[in-house]
Amino acid sequence: MSGRFLFVGKRLILAVPLLLGVVLLVFLLLQITPGDPARQIVGLRASEADVAQVRDQLGLDDSVFSQYARYLGGVVQGDLGFSYKSRQPVADMVAARLPVSGWLVISGLVVSLMITIPLGVWAAIQRDRAGDHITRGVSLLGIAMPSFWVGLMLILLVALPTGWFPVGGFGDTFGQRLNAIVLPAVTLGIAMAPIQIRSLRASIIRCLGSDYVAAGRALGASGFLLVRRFVLRNAASSMVTLAAVQTSFLLFTMVVLETTFGLPGLGQGMVMAAVQRDLPAVQGYTLVFALTVVLVYLLADVVNAVLDPRVEIRG
């Protein structure tokens, strides 16, 4: 047991330099982006004196090192700077948009698991037979389809003919919002499922070849029962790792689908900020996404340590 705590502790300590690196990369965006931020804030017609004053206020004439220290200090206190466009604190914009993205991601993952678990198990049991080939073909098709196009086709084939779902936007009441999230969540699920199916299939097949499953077989378990009782928990560990690896793709798909469906989440915010050339907002959203990924990796390792007592720190 202590070994596991040690592992989690080491993992936490290892995350610190990664977090610092992430903040550094986001900070460097300011340095590689051409143009004078102060000029952007005050507008093209402002005088040089005004520009100089804003530069002074923002500390843009300080050394890069002290600017980084100030940025890092702000981030630690939850201060992500002010948007050039809305003049709001970026942290407030993030906070307002976070729940929308959260709901989309959670419901999208639920949908993807509803697709992945039956198909992945079926493909593994039917290895090299019809079910396996059908699942594989469906996955290939799923990988080849751009998520935003799938979303538009769902609007075209489901939302427009039936009128059950809005073609975009989020709504004000809880009911409207629930309704607005259905098609984006289904689209997100379809986008995530193919890679999950492949991975679940592979890890079930690996487990099916092991000794404890042979023991299960000897006890008379077979088919779905065998998989449910003896395999899934063992296959879960590699699924947790996959979920972490998939996070980056998940977040990107979320960004694309929020824009497709007009959902006011973090992704739509980031795209709008990028189009409007709102540097602090882009930095803020990038940082939030990056921190999410770092935390998910951390969480995945911790969960795996709990699920599987054999986990040790990897080289």
């Binding site: 990664l18 965006l29 982006t33 980056s248 882009v282 990038t286 990056a290």
Partner: peptide
């Protein structure tokens, strides 16, 4: 390691912005 621990597509959006 650093690149793999980063949300790569989000990084692309940020790079495209810059």
């Amino acid at each position: 390691d650093l690149v793999q621990g980063f949300p790569v597509y989000i990084l692309i959006i940020a790079l495209v912005f810059a």
